[in-house]
């Protein structure tokens, strides 16, 4: 029972960051109706930039966080400009293939510009773990959970409580009607992309401080986790992405505790397959 609870708590803490990745994916997919495979790699660029800075300037946590988010934003602008805006008149699959090419570019770029494949990322390791009865809350996990929860609250406030967010949701709801109402749909799409990139960058900070290191395969990892969270939540629903991310985190840690690490990914993808196969009414992109 304690094992189950411990795995559940660990899963929620881990899953909160998957939710963030899922939200970033959902924002882009919901507004632009196109899949951005380069979402993970844009975060990778940010984390590598942060890692470089931390090597040059040890102990500078706030600048490292700022540079990580700025790096993800910059890479996001690159993807938006060349894989989405430049190809807006092409079929969605063309954008997707283009994001795959950008993914490879970014992955190679960070490998070339780094002294080693595995780079360290600073973590506030001095923070103590908290014990609640028999359950141990590790500091990096607590940081992931609390950080992700704050970012999600801010994001939901932005999308559901501001005019900017209302306009984004209107375009996601019906870009055709929004165009006819006079909304500048291209600009709203670019803005949503930037918000998603910033959320991705912040998720990157939270995940990298927990891993304490990063490799060029982080891009693949983040894309897969984010896409799975989005798909588990029904592809296109923001609350769905949060639930999807949490579910993925819990399933991963429960499998890890009870069956061992080698089964973790197999079970999560089996879950994804089952959800997609068994829910004919999955809301494939019907508004945020």
């Amino acid at each position: 029972m304690v094992d189950f609870l411990q795995a559940l708590v660990d899963g929620v803490m881990l899953g909160a960051t998957y939710s963030l990745l899922g939200l970033g994916f959902t924002l882009i997919f919901g507004v632009l109706r196109r899949l951005n495979l380069a979402f993970g790699p844009t975060i990778l660029v940010g984390i590598y930039a942060g890692s470089h800075l931390s090597l040059a300037w040890p102990g500078a946590l706030v600048p490292v966080v700022a540079v990580t988010v700025a790096g993800a934003l910059l890479a996001g602008v690159y993807v938006e400009r060349f894989s989405f805006r430049a190809l807006a008149r092409q079929a969605p699959v063309v954008s997707m293939i283009s994001t795959f090419a950008v993914w490879m570019q970014l992955q190679e770029l960070v490998s070339l510009l780094s002294p080693s494949r595995t780079m360290p990322y600073p973590s506030p390791v001095w923070l103590p773990a908290v014990a609640v009865g028999p359950i141990l809350l590790r500091s990096d996990g607590l940081l992931m959970w609390s950080g992700a929860t704050l970012i999600m609250l801010a994001l939901f406030a932005l999308l559901y409580r501001t005019r900017f967010g209302t306009t984004i949701r209107a375009v996601a709801d019906s870009s055709e009607a929004a165009t006819l109402m006079g909304v500048n749909v291209a600009m709203v799409g670019a803005a949503a992309f930037l918000v998603a990139s910033a959320v991705g960058g912040l998720a990157g900070v939270l995940i990298a401080q927990s891993h304490q290191q990063v490799t060029p395969y982080f891009g693949l990892w983040a894309t897969v986790k984010g896409m799975t969270a989005m798909l588990l939540g029904g592809a296109g629903s923001l609350p769905g992405a949060v639930v999807g991310g949490l579910a993925l985190g819990v399933v991963e840690t429960q499998t890890l505790w009870h069956f061992g690490g080698q089964w973790r990914d197999l079970v999560s993808y089996a879950l994804l397959f089952l959800v997609v196969a068994l829910s004919p009414r999955t809301r494939w992109g019907s508004g945020l």
């Binding site: 949701r169 709801d173 019906s174 006819l180 508004g287 945020l288």
Partner: peptide, 9 residues
């Protein structure tokens, strides 16, 4: 002719 509202708003 066919209604085009923002259903989720």
């Amino acid at each position: 002719q066919s209604i085009r509202l923002f259903g989720g708003l």
